[in-house]
Simulated assay, not measured.
Amino acid sequence: MANQRQPIQLIKAKGKKHLTKNEIEERTNSEIPPITDGIAPPDYLNEVQKKRFRAVAEDLQALEIMGKTDCDALARYVVVEELFEVASKTLQDPEVLADPEKTVSATLALEKCFKMCRAAAGDLGLTISSRCKLVVPKAPEDKKPNKFNRFDKTG
């Protein structure tokens, strides 16, 4: 199975694959940047969820990884995150903890919400491991100038 296609900036930063200038230009032109205009919370979110949506969207836009097409995915994450918080508070209720059946039911609900929240967070780059896959590393700076740069005819 082939590896997932990587952005040209990532390939250049890694420095492991040698591409011609034409190949780099072709790859750069074929990559689609995210559409960042019109990112807004969907109507089905309540006011608290919309506020959370805007906060997370702002962070993702700062990382340059969120586009307009990601709005519904982020909205689903915000909804599930709120459900997780409700399930967590339910499990802390002394009345629920006193009844074994209610405790098991609340624990299962919390577990389902956690799994959904974690999956959505991973898709959006909100976990450490998923963000490491998304962030393009910076190319290391050359410490000393290349002695062959004077023969370069492009500059």
Rank of each mutant, 00 (worst) to 15 (best):
E111C: 05
E58G: 01
Y77T: 03
R54A: 03
T69D: 14
A57R: 00
K51A: 11
R54W: 01
G38P: 02
P33A: 14
R52I: 02
Y44G: 05
S30G: 12
D152L: 04
D70R: 03
V135C: 05
P41A: 08
K50F: 06
E81Y: 10
S30K: 15
Q49H: 00
I11D: 02
F148T: 14
S30T: 14
C117Q: 13
E64Y: 06
A106T: 07
S88P: 03
L74D: 01
K14M: 05
R54T: 03
D59A: 11
P7R: 13
L110N: 13
S88G: 11
C117K: 15
E111Q: 05
V79S: 00
K68A: 07
T36G: 01
A55D: 10
P137S: 09
G155Y: 13
K115F: 00
T28I: 13
D123N: 15
Q61M: 13
N22L: 13
S130I: 04
I11T: 09
Q6N: 08
F148K: 12
D72I: 13
V96I: 04
K144P: 03
D70Y: 01
P137Y: 12
L19A: 07
D43C: 05
V104W: 12
I11A: 06
Q49R: 00
E25V: 07
P100V: 07
K147Q: 12
V80T: 09
L134S: 15
P140W: 06
N149F: 14
P100R: 03
F148S: 11
S129K: 14
L126C: 09
C113M: 10
C71S: 10
L45T: 06
K153N: 04
K143G: 15
E25C: 02
P94D: 03
L108D: 12
D59G: 14
P140H: 06
E31A: 13
K12L: 15
L134R: 10
K16S: 11
R150E: 10
A73F: 05
I65T: 05
P34L: 01
E111V: 02
I8F: 01
E95I: 04
M1L: 13
D152R: 05
F84A: 08
K133Q: 13
K68D: 08
N3I: 05
A73E: 09
G67S: 03
A87F: 10
D59E: 09
L83Y: 08
P137V: 08
V79K: 06
D72P: 02
C117Y: 09
Y44W: 07
E82M: 04
N29K: 15
E101P: 02
G38V: 06
